[in-house]
Design a protein around this nucleic acid. Structure first.
Lengths: 194, 194
DNA sequence: GAGCATACCTACTCGTGCGTAGGGTTACGC
DNA sequence: GCGTAACCCTACGCACGAGTAGGTATGCTC
């Protein structure tokens, strides 16, 4: 039943999706949808929640915290892109939708914040192992950028059905890890004096 | 008048924004809005278009094509974040909105495609100068990731009014350029055999 | 088989907001 | 002063879709 909702929401977008269509698609009638899952908003949140949880589990399951940073990142990315590849419409539109609609942006922001935190933690851990440190804000911003790049590639992946998730993950590693590794080794870029 | 529309669209989101509110905010009445700018969709597209054009101009004006790649990237980023910083609500919500709503996603995709193309062209140019080459797809994906990371930081910037655009641009360079530079020098990351 | 409950449906109400019809007001020509 | 034309407004029609009321069938208890 949630599956039907996810499908319709992704096909139409939150507003354009009608409860009638969801009901029809689920093979039941509208009052049933209301009985089981409440209002349209609640239904959407339920979808978002389920997909989000699944995704987080997929990632958390793959990236064990005792691995070295690059290995963790790689496995996390692989799991992430694998998940998106397997749930293309689920991801694409739930995610894109939720981003725009104020009532749900919060829910999503929390999810992203968790991811950012994980990535930032990972970087921080790796940095300390190298005997280095950077300001928490910088760390957060870098993590944010990495997460953003990843989300962006996920969008790309969702739009390119023929693309291979693992290959995409490799490409992401090429951008992200090589850059991050530099930072870890103390190499930084500075603006020209101009 | 477009200013009013942008303001309301960003405050409310596309659907929640009512034409009445836009009209009121612009200090005129609804039929006038229709007379000048047509339907709600057309109005939104007009907003999107204007903001997009302004942004592209800001970037294009800053990143002259005859500069070296890193310098171009840096100036482009500075211009971009500067623009976002100066038009926080304009950017944030128009952009986030357009992403989700199917009728406008295309418009936005075109804009992003132009950006990706520019970035990819830049990388390609730099690569050739080093006597190297990579597949066009890889190039596109890397460019896509960079653009995505940048957009993501733009979101972050829009949500943190106290943050400094130029500093954000520097942070972005730290992630993007150090990574990209590695690629340019032929350093790549490969997945472990496992 | 009568009484009852559970599961579900059809068919409605009602609010909301886009787009417009038709009327008032001011300025100008004659 | 009267016609008229440009301009802008108030006030409405209308469609659409969320949420619900009230009725119907199926199965279960005694």
């Amino acid at each position: 039943m949630l599956d039907a909702a996810v499908k319709v929401f992704s096909r139409r977008g939150f507003h354009a999706a009608s409860m009638d269509e969801i009901a029809e698609d689920a093979g039941i009638s509208k009052p049933m949808v209301y009985a089981y899952l409440g209002t349209k908003e609640e239904l959407f949140v339920a979808c978002l929640h389920r997909e989000g949880t699944r995704m987080m589990q997929a990632i958390a399951g793959a990236a064990a915290p005792d691995l070295p940073a690059d290995e963790r990142l790689w496995r996390g990315l692989k799991a992430f892109f694998g998940f998106v590849g397997a749930h293309r419409d689920g991801w694409a539109v739930l995610y894109r939708q939720a981003r725009g609609e104020q009532p749900f942006a919060g829910e999503l922001a929390t999810m992203r914040a968790r991811l950012v935190e994980v990535v930032a933690g990972m970087l921080d851990h790796a940095l300390r192992a190298e005997g280095r440190e950077i300001a928490a804000v910088d760390l957060e911003v870098v993590a944010y950028a990495l997460v953003g790049a990843t989300e962006s590639l996920a969008d790309w992946l969702a739009d390119h059905p023929e693309a291979d998730p693992e290959k995409t993950a490799t490409r992401m590693m090429n951008v992200a890890w090589l850059g991050a590794a530099q930072l870890l080794h103390g190499v930084t870029w500075r603006p020209p004096a101009d």
